[in-house]
Computed example of a mutant assay.
Amino acid sequence: MNKELSMEDMLNEVEASMKSVRKGQIVKCKIVSVRDNELIVSTGSMFDGILPRTEININDNVELKDIFKEDEELELLVLHVNTSENEVTLSKKRIDSINTWKELQELYNSKEIFEVKVKEVVKGGVITEIKGERAFIPASQLSVRFVKDLNEFVSKDLKVKIIEFDKEKKKIVLSRREVEAAEVEAKKNSALESINKGDKKHGVVTRIAKFGAFVDLDGIEGLIHLSELSWRKVKDASEVVSVGDAVEVYVIDVDKESKKIALTLKEAKDNPWNNIENKYAKGSVHEGTVVKILDFGALVELEPTVKGLVHISQIEEEPVAKVSNVLNVGDKVKVKVLQVSEENQKISLSIKEAIERPVEDLSEFVDDNDSMGTLADLFKEKLGKLDLK
Rank of each mutant, 00 (worst) to 15 (best):
N278Q: 14
L265R: 05
D236Y: 08
V234G: 02
S230V: 01
D245K: 00
D270L: 07
L229V: 08
D295C: 03
L226R: 14
D236L: 14
Y250W: 11
D236S: 13
N278I: 10
T264W: 05
K292I: 05
G219Y: 06
H225Q: 13
D245E: 09
S284M: 07
T264F: 05
E287Y: 13
T289D: 12
I293M: 10
K282A: 04
E239I: 00
A281Y: 14
R232A: 15
V291W: 04
V291Q: 00
L263A: 08
K259M: 11
Y250C: 02
N278D: 13
N275K: 14
N274W: 13
V241D: 01
A237W: 01
L294A: 11
P272Y: 05
K235C: 03
E267Q: 13
V251M: 02
I261S: 04
D253H: 02
Y280H: 01
S238W: 00
Y250I: 06
T264N: 10
K259D: 03
H225N: 13
L294E: 06
T264G: 10
D253A: 06
S227F: 13
H286F: 14
G219N: 04
K260P: 07
I261D: 00
K233P: 07
E287T: 13
T289H: 13
V243K: 12
D236I: 09
V243C: 00
K279P: 01
H286D: 09
L265E: 14
Y250N: 11
H286G: 06
N275A: 06
V240H: 01
N278H: 09
L294S: 13
L229Y: 04
K256H: 06
K260H: 05
L294I: 10
V254S: 01
A268T: 04
E228L: 03
E248G: 00
K260A: 03
D245Q: 01
S242N: 14
E228C: 10
N278C: 03
E228Q: 15
N278V: 11
K292M: 12
E267N: 14
L229D: 08
S258E: 10
S242R: 08
V240N: 07
S238N: 13
V254P: 00
